[in-house]
Computed example of a mutant assay.
Amino acid sequence: MKVVRSFLITCLILAIGTFIVFQGLNLVMNKDKIQENKQSANPKQTIHFLAIGDSLTKGVGDSTQNGGYVPLVANQLKETRGIDNVTTKNYGITGERSDQILKRVQQQEDLQVDIKRADIIVLSAGGNDLVQTFKKEKLKINQESFLQPEKKYKNNLSMILKKLNKQNPKAQIYVFGLYNPYDSLFPEMTEMKDILLSWNTATKLIAEENKATYFSLSSLFNGAERPTISKINKSSEKIDTSSLLYEEDLFHPNDKGYQLIANELYRAIIDHKKISD
């Protein structure tokens, strides 16, 4: 009888021990699965950042000669949670008008390859269209002289964006507006302000029609007040436009100007990402 009782107790202990071990293994496996699910739900991304355009895209005025705002935004994205790596391609060419940029988008094979793989595309165009008109008019500002160039620019911009959307409908596209580099030096040039307003209004409308985001540079460079970059001090500060410009030409942004562009563009990208998520 004692032998039978001992046998039964031994079996019971073994059964309880086996149950405990099984439940422990089950718990560990479930934790691993939960962790795997969390990692698969929030995978780290590689972002392909593509910049297309004129001298503003190329980064003229950047003392490091590394490409203006492009590497600055890339570095900020790399430090963002959930982003593992950022690749950049800069197709900025100094002096190009919107029709020349359109031609490259339509015909340049390596550019087309990068358009198809891009997650973010930033476009700057139109500045040299304006400059060309100024030169033809011998620097005189006559609003009527800019009507036909604006019409051509609008058509070129629309075709560029349609081509980008066709080649890569999933890309997040940003279109830079234009700013007035002479705003602080010649505030009495009201005609210039009217011309830029017309061009920027058209740019914003065309961008929205083509599922792109309009990025205002005039609000950064020509706004009387703008928010400070500091997250701590949320008050407003007045900035002289000339302090953001390259000293050698007083036209392109300097390091401070490119940093301002990069900071605001980064915020726009992250805000767009939050909405998409």
Results as ranks from 00 to 15, higher is better:
residue 112 Q to T: 07
residue 110 D to A: 10
residue 248 E to R: 14
residue 5 R to I: 13
residue 54 D to S: 03
residue 242 S to G: 07
residue 40 S to G: 08
residue 41 A to P: 08
residue 173 I to A: 06
residue 179 Y to V: 03
residue 190 T to I: 06
residue 183 D to T: 09
residue 53 G to T: 02
residue 34 I to C: 08
residue 81 R to C: 14
residue 178 L to F: 08
residue 82 G to L: 05
residue 194 D to E: 15
residue 254 N to E: 10
residue 190 T to K: 12
residue 212 A to S: 11
residue 36 E to C: 06
residue 196 L to Y: 08
residue 130 L to C: 04
residue 89 K to Y: 11
residue 179 Y to E: 02
residue 110 D to K: 11
residue 275 I to Q: 13
residue 267 R to V: 07
residue 65 Q to E: 14
residue 146 F to P: 01
residue 272 H to K: 13
residue 116 K to W: 09
residue 250 L to N: 15
residue 239 I to F: 05
residue 170 K to Y: 12
residue 72 L to W: 01
residue 35 Q to R: 13
residue 100 Q to V: 04
residue 129 D to C: 03
residue 162 K to W: 04
residue 132 Q to F: 11
residue 165 N to W: 06
residue 62 D to F: 00
residue 6 S to K: 14
residue 156 N to R: 04
residue 240 D to P: 07
residue 35 Q to S: 15
residue 238 K to H: 05
residue 102 L to I: 02
residue 242 S to N: 12
residue 53 G to S: 05
residue 110 D to L: 10
residue 220 L to Q: 00
residue 130 L to E: 01
residue 111 L to Y: 03
residue 194 D to Q: 14
residue 15 A to G: 07
residue 8 L to N: 06
residue 35 Q to A: 15
residue 157 L to K: 03
residue 216 S to W: 01
residue 144 E to C: 03
residue 76 Q to Y: 05
residue 109 E to Y: 07
residue 181 P to L: 05
residue 180 N to D: 13
residue 177 G to P: 09
residue 41 A to C: 14
residue 106 Q to W: 10
residue 63 S to A: 10
residue 115 I to H: 01
residue 262 A to G: 02
residue 164 L to W: 08
residue 184 S to V: 06
residue 114 D to T: 06
residue 74 A to N: 00
residue 262 A to S: 10
residue 257 G to R: 00
residue 115 I to Y: 02
residue 177 G to R: 02
residue 219 S to Y: 11
residue 236 S to P: 04
residue 183 D to S: 14
residue 108 Q to W: 09
residue 228 T to E: 12
residue 12 L to F: 08
residue 22 F to M: 08
residue 43 P to H: 04
residue 116 K to R: 11
residue 60 V to F: 00
residue 248 E to L: 06
residue 271 D to L: 12
residue 271 D to V: 14
residue 85 N to C: 06
residue 225 E to C: 11
residue 25 L to H: 14
residue 192 M to H: 04
residue 177 G to S: 10
residue 65 Q to T: 12
residue 154 K to H: 07
residue 148 Q to C: 05
residue 197 L to F: 13
residue 202 A to T: 13
residue 238 K to D: 09
residue 57 T to G: 05
residue 110 D to Y: 11
residue 168 N to E: 08
residue 60 V to L: 09
residue 275 I to H: 12
residue 252 H to D: 09
residue 7 F to M: 14
residue 213 T to R: 01
residue 192 M to G: 11
residue 46 T to S: 05
residue 137 E to R: 09
residue 75 N to F: 01
residue 20 I to T: 09
residue 274 K to P: 07
residue 177 G to C: 06
residue 270 I to G: 05
residue 29 M to Y: 11
residue 142 N to E: 15
residue 14 L to C: 10
residue 119 D to E: 13
residue 167 Q to A: 10
residue 169 P to V: 05
residue 31 K to H: 13
residue 264 E to A: 01
residue 276 S to W: 15
residue 257 G to H: 00
residue 111 L to S: 07
residue 42 N to H: 13
residue 62 D to K: 00
residue 97 R to C: 00
residue 273 K to Q: 15
residue 205 L to G: 09
residue 113 V to T: 14
residue 269 I to M: 12
residue 238 K to A: 12
residue 153 Y to H: 07
residue 19 F to E: 05
residue 139 L to N: 15
residue 111 L to C: 04
residue 52 I to C: 03
residue 143 Q to E: 12
residue 122 V to F: 03
residue 233 N to L: 15
residue 171 A to S: 14
residue 44 K to W: 10
residue 274 K to M: 13
residue 96 E to C: 03
residue 146 F to H: 03
residue 53 G to E: 01
